[in-house]
């Protein structure tokens, strides 16, 4: 039987752990609200952008002179995987799931004889992929100093990616991030951004015929790089909300587990205390009887 002092210490330490997880849960809840707000505020831009791009891509897409960002380089030999994860852990399976999705994809591509390059955003993804693919890493973007993701951060990532594309370093780029569904569900998602895949407008026949100023191709050439930044920005925001959601539910579980553990330990503590008292009583009584 463990002695009373040890039990007391265990209870105290689990209690302080519970305090920490509880605090982290509340911080995550507050951050989640903010992250969700910014994700929602960016939505109108992304939606309209994609709608216009869809129209443009539909009208220019099939011609030979379409920009490479839209039509691709004509091969799919070299793949760039842009893996976006959090800078911190303690958020359940969030980082692990994104890294797993990327790992599976990378292994499949390698098995198919393609070349894989990996660019990571966020420390956790880098750490977990480094073990298997350390020779495939081309770049890492550090986000640890950024408190709130701004569009300029996405632009910086996009610039890095576009510079590599212009230099002919890869043919296809895919981003990996977690789509926020609700607090308990975040779906790890892979989305191809180069060559760009835009959905054509639903009712192509009924949609308005636009004049373009300057011409369609010039607009497209101007907008495609922005499209990459926009998609990265949207993914970063989704990721931000997902991370906080995942952390919130992970910390909620941790708090609950700590509570259960305290209950169990307290019962054990009381039992041993009573056993000690009973023992003492027996000693006193048998001592008195012996007299």
């Amino acid at each position: 039987m463990p002695n009373l002092k040890d039990l007391k210490n265990r209870i105290a330490s689990v209690k302080s752990t519970r305090k920490i997880t509880k605090a982290m849960q509340m911080v995550a809840a507050a951050k989640l609200r903010r992250a969700q707000e910014s994700a929602e505020q960016s939505r109108p831009y992304t939606e309209r952008f994609n709608a216009v791009m869809g129209q443009l891509a539909a009208s220019v897409g099939n011609s030979d002179s379409a920009p490479k960002l839209l039509s691709g380089t004509g091969s799919d030999q070299v793949h760039l995987l842009i893996v976006m994860t959090a800078e911190r852990g303690l958020c359940g399976g969030f980082n692990g799931n994104i890294a797993k999705l990327a790992r599976v994809k990378a292994q499949r591509l390698i098995a198919a004889g393609k070349t894989v390059k990996i660019l990571t955003v966020g420390k956790k993804g880098r750490d977990s992929l480094k073990r298997d693919f350390s020779d495939k890493f081309v770049h890492h973007v550090d986000m640890s100093d950024i408190k709130r993701v701004a569009y300029t951060d996405a632009q910086a990532v996009a610039k890095e990616v576009l510079a590599r594309f212009d230099a002919g370093e890869f043919d296809v780029a895919t981003i990996f991030y977690a789509k926020f569904v609700n607090v308990v569900t975040q779906n790890p998602t892979a989305q191809q951004i180069i060559p760009a895949a835009f959905e054509a407008p639903e009712d192509a026949g009924a949609s308005t015929v636009y004049d373009y100023e300057p011409d369609e191709e010039a607009i497209l050439a101007d907008l495609l790089p922005r499209g990459v930044a926009t998609q990265i920005f949207a993914a970063l925001l989704e990721n931000g909300a997902s991370e906080q959601g995942a952390r919130m539910s992970a910390m909620d579980n941790a708090t609950r587990n700590a509570g259960e553990m305290i209950d169990k330990l307290t019962i054990e503590f009381n039992r041993s205390r009573q056993a000690v008292i009973t023992n003492e009583l027996i000693e006193i009584i048998s001592g008195a009887e012996a007299l």
């Binding site: 216009v52 129209q55 443009l56 308005t208 015929v209 636009y210 004049d211 373009y212 100023e213 300057p214 010039a218 607009i219 101007d222 907008l223």
Partner: peptide, 19 residues
């Protein structure tokens, strides 16, 4: 401030996309 020059858009303008 359009890329090819300023323009004023008023209701019932012809559909245009400009940078």
């Amino acid at each position: 401030p359009g890329a090819d020059g300023d323009m004023t858009a008023m209701p019932d303008h012809a559909p245009v996309i400009t940078t």
